[in-house]
Amino acid sequence: MLTRVLHSSITRRFVTALGTLFGVAVLVFAMLRAIPGDQVTAQFGIESGALTAAQRASLESYYGLDQPLFVQFFSWLGNVLTGNQGFSARSHMSVAELTALSLPVTIELAIITIVFSLLLGVPLGMLSASKPNSARDAFGQVIALAGLSIPAFLLGSSVMAWAASSWGENPNGQAFAQLAENPGLNLRQMILPAAVLAFGIAAPIMRTTRTAVLDVRSKDFIRTARAKGLAPRRIQFRHVLTNALVPITTMTGLQFGYLLGGAIVIEQVFSLPGIGRQVLVGIEQKEYAVVQSTILIIAVCFVLVNLLTDILYRVIDPRVRAL
C-alpha cells in the first residue's frame, strides 16, 4: 500500500517539486549574497562611507544582516513555511501584501499575452505548414523571425510613442489601474504590452505548430483520411490540428510559465507594477527577503503551470490518459 502511494506519479511529482523549490530557495539565497553590496550600501550609496561603525552596526541589526548566513537562511525559510514571507522596509508592506498587488497584474498580462500569441502563432504556423517552402511559408517564417529578433523594449517604446503621437492614446502614462477598480483603463493599459510580448512569444508557437502539423500530415492516418475523401478543411482541423496540439500545448505552457516570472523589460517600458518589477527593485535595493520570497512564489507558479500542462495532455490526448 505504502509503496504504491510512494510510486504513484502524483506523489513522486510532489516530492520532486518540493526538492526543486528548496533548490531554488538555496540558489537564490546564495546568489543574492554573492552580489556586491548589502541593503545598507543600497540605501545609502556612497553616503554609507560616512557612517560610523556603531551606526553601521545599528543598521545591520535592523536589517538582520548581523546574523550568520546559516541563521539568516533558516529563519527566513521557517518564516515562509509559517506563512510570513518577510517585510519590505522600502514599501512599508509585507511581501504577501506586495505580491497580492503585483501577481494578479502579471497573471493577467500573461493570460492576455498567451491568448494573443495563440491567435497569431497557431494560424500562422498552419499557414506555413499548408505549403512548405512556398511564399506563404516564407511569409510566416519571416514574421516569426521578426518576432524573435526585434527586442521587446524597442518595439514597446516605438509602438507606445507612435500611439501617443498619432492618437494621443497613452493609457500607460496614466496611473496604473487595478482590474477590479477600473477594468476599462486596466485593459487599455494591458493591450499594448500584451501585444508586444505576444509578438515575441507567437514565434516559437508558430514554429512548433508548423513542425507539428508537418509531422502529423506525413502520418498514415492522414493519408487514409484523405483517401476516403474527407474534406481538406475537415482533415486540417479535426485530424491534423488535434493531433498537433500536444507539442503546441507544451510550448504554450512553457511560455506561460516564463511569463509568470514577470516580463521585466515590458513591465519597465509600460510601467506595469508586476512581479518582475518587484524582483528587480528588490534586487536593486538588496531587499533579500523580498527577492527570495517572490522568486519562491514565481517558482511555485511555474511548477503549478507545468502540472496543469501535464493534466491538459490527458484531456487532449487519449493515448496519454491510457498510460
Binding site: S157, A161, A164, S165, G168, E169, G173, V269, S271
Partner: peptide, 21 residues
C-alpha cells in the same frame, strides 16, 4: 503633486507627449 513611477525615461517622454505627466 503626484510622483508617478515610470521606470523608463523614454516612457516618461511619451507620457509628457500624451499630457499624462
Amino acid at each position: 503633486v503626484e510622483f508617478r513611477v515610470i521606470p523608463d525615461e523614454t516612457s516618461i517622454v511619451t507620457a509628457m507627449q500624451s499630457g499624462n505627466v
